[in-house]
Nucleic acid binder design. Structure first.
Lengths: 147, 147
DNA sequence: CTTGAAGCTACAGTTGCTGTAGCTCTTATA
DNA sequence: TATAAGAGCTACAGCAACTGTAGCTTCAAG
């Protein structure tokens, strides 16, 4: 029987986070001591480890919920699980691409600043006047995406 | 004199977001018509475009606030502006590195699933049993970092 | 003068937690 | 067995950076 603190230490989770997962139904309600404290079993520890690892891989809690549900129906579900993972991979790749273009632009910005030692800083100019910023805002593109 | 909707269209911002920026003091309080509607000038449009472009580059609203404050003091501030940009670049690079390692792991996971056609899906196993997940949770590492 | 789009305020909700206040419980030691 | 530290409890507020909703008012074209 594990206390919530032990669960937290073993999985690198904060205690409040575990309670939060319980609150949103991602972790089951565990047993309690007479005094009302939570006591967990080995299966709970596995489940929490699963959640944390998936979170580290960038899966949303919704996707994790999906994976946990799928794992309860072992037949016919490998393809669906694969689809969730594929979707996650595509999201990660899109974020990488986006960040890489940001990196290029930031580098360029910083380079221009250094080349222009005495005059006013170019970084602010670049930020102010970037071409595509006062036009062409119909296409949504990646705008809503988290970086 | 520009309406808030025109500002929104020109910069690709939602109307509510502009009002939000005003609320948190990032945009100034504009003039109002007799009926209470906001009317903006060219300087406001520039400032909003600056904010949006910086946001697209991944700068936090706090960093943008810093840049806007610095841009009001043109002397001696280029180095500080450069520092903000350098910090942003480092953050972007760290996020790219993190995402790339996620990508590798996701790919590996998916590959194992495909190689194992009939048996139970390996993805769940991998998520459940990753080596470092039930140990070594003292070092913070990149754990708190946004992906 | 009417009508419909656009604007207004105020507030709730989003994601994934984290922090705080003010308690109570457990457990090791004296 | 008493006590005290540390861990746990609930309930709620707060974070970033918006987004959406309800229910109204104003503006501008025809």
């Amino acid at each position: 029987m594990l206390t919530i603190g032990t669960m937290a230490k073993r999985t690198g989770t904060k205690v409040q986070t575990i309670r939060y997962y319980e609150q949103i139904g991602l972790m089951p309600e565990p047993g309690r001591t007479g005094g009302g404290q939570r006591r967990y079993g080995a299966a709970d520890l596995d489940r929490l480890a699963f959640i944390r690892h998936a979170r580290e891989l960038g899966f949303s809690l919704e996707a994790i919920r999906e994976l946990l549900d799928l794992s309860d129906t072992p037949e016919k579900s490998c393809a669906e699980i694969d689809a969730v993972a594929q979707r996650q991979l595509r999201e990660v790749q899109a974020r990488i691409a986006r960040l890489q273009s940001l990196e290029v632009e930031l580098r360029r910005m910083i380079a221009e600043c250094h080349s222009d030692r005495v005059a006013d800083c170019r970084i602010l100019e670049v930020l102010r006047d970037h071409e595509e910023c006062l036009s062409d805002h119909k296409g949504a593109g990646l705008r809503g995406m988290p970086l």
